[in-house]
């Protein structure tokens, strides 16, 4: 006997157009894919949609296909498990596979989707709680309340984006395809996020993610996730690094981080490392740059100090190992 979900009706469109049409005709509609994030929130009384538009019967949405430019188009409905098991992904984009393989547990991975993972709601210990709990705690800015318990003086929500795939897609320069009532558009993944923990996506009403384009020739990349347990846990910090080299020197370096800020983001100011052999000083500098740009807050029970340091260290050691690697 679980707590009852709100009395929504569930619709099953079979095409993207139909999904958008249903969404448009029902005023209070939400898209649901695997539901491994959304249903958990609904069970906790977060959200009260009248209609859920399921994306699970839209078939062309669930494929991994070759893109026109030699890259790959990953449908937003591809499950995390299928992404991790895909042969092309395994061979050409191993960092994606690592990130996918470390998401939640096997049951979530069989159900959860790439689109849901990129659109995942932001997380905070004051938010991911039951209705009773949040009410007893006088709610908070992000939902039904007036103040933020993490930073009570401000009027900004710091809830952390905690999906594992986004940083890898960011360092691979992936682009997303969005469909909506006004047609489709394609833009860099970073444009999906607002930077506000409360309303974290730039999607307009009725818009949905349909696919992700990964370019053909991506630099070697890696992903490391920090969490307390070996499974289930969301990232406390997740760092993706992509690096090309010129002999024993860095040519290009990209780093993206998840789990620490309201959005997954690309670390800035890494041009300075072009030409570096990542000696000890540069390693320290690199860790420092990352540490300065991540801003973990007390949105989890794990202390920000450690998460910050760990993010820096994971960036440093992955960069070093990519530079050393063949």
């Amino acid at each position: 006997m679980t707590e009852l979900l709100p009395a929504f009706s569930l619709r099953h469109p079979t095409s993207i157009e139909e999904a958008i049409a249903i969404h448009g005709s029902a005023p209070d509609a939400r898209y649901v894919a695997g539901g491994t994030d959304l249903i958990v929130n609904l069970r906790r009384g977060i959200g009260d949609p009248e209609t859920l538009v399921s994306l699970n019967r839209i078939e062309d949405f669930q494929n991994i296909a070759d893109g026109k430019d030699g890259g790959l188009v990953i449908g937003a409905g591809v499950t995390i498990a299928n992404l991790a098991n895909d042969v092309t992904i395994r061979t050409r984009y191993p960092a994606l596979r690592v990130a996918a393989g470390e998401i939640a547990g096997p049951g979530h991975r069989e159900t959860g989707t790439v689109g849901g993972n990129l659109c995942l709601d932001t997380r905070c210990v004051f938010y991911n709680q039951s209705q009773w709990w949040r009410e007893a705690n006088h709610f908070c800015l992000k939902h039904q309340g007036e103040i933020c318990h993490v930073a009570p003086k401000g009027d900004f929500c710091h809830a952390a984006f905690s999906g594992d795939l986004a940083p890898v897609f960011l360092v691979l320069d992936a682009e997303i395809e969005i469909a909506g009532p006004d047609g489709t558009r394609r833009e860099p993944l970073s444009a999906l996020y607002t930077g506000d923990g409360m309303d974290h996506l730039t999607l307009k009403p009725g818009e949905l993610l349909t696919g992700i384009h990964v370019p053909a020739n991506t630099p070697p990349a890696a992903y490391e996730k920090h969490r307390v347990r070996g499974a289930i846990d969301f990232p406390l910090a997740g760092v993706a690094v992509a690096l090309t080299k010129d002999g024993d020197k860095v040519k290009t370096l990209k780093i993206a981080v998840t789990g620490t800020n309201t959005s997954p983001f690309l670390v800035e100011g890494l041009e300075a490392f072009t030409g570096s052999t990542l000696g000890e000083d540069d390693q320290a500098k690199l860790a420092d740059i990352v540490q300065k740009q991540v801003s973990p807050m007390k949105t989890t029970l794990v202390q920000p100090f450690g998460r910050r340091r760990i993010a820096g260290a994971m960036a440093r050691r992955q960069a070093v190992s990519l530079l050393a690697g063949g």
């Binding site: 547990g105 210990v125 991911n128 709680q129 007893a136 347990r229 499974a231 289930i232 846990d233 029970l301």
Partner: peptide, 26 residues
């Protein structure tokens, strides 16, 4: 594993993500 209480006394750990019982992996 540990319980935590917010400074106002709210129990912060009352779910199985924040109260971390080890998984089989580690």
């Amino acid at each position: 594993e540990e319980t935590r209480y917010h400074k106002n006394g709210m129990p912060m750990f009352t779910n199985m993500l924040d109260y971390r019982v080890p998984s089989i992996v580690e």
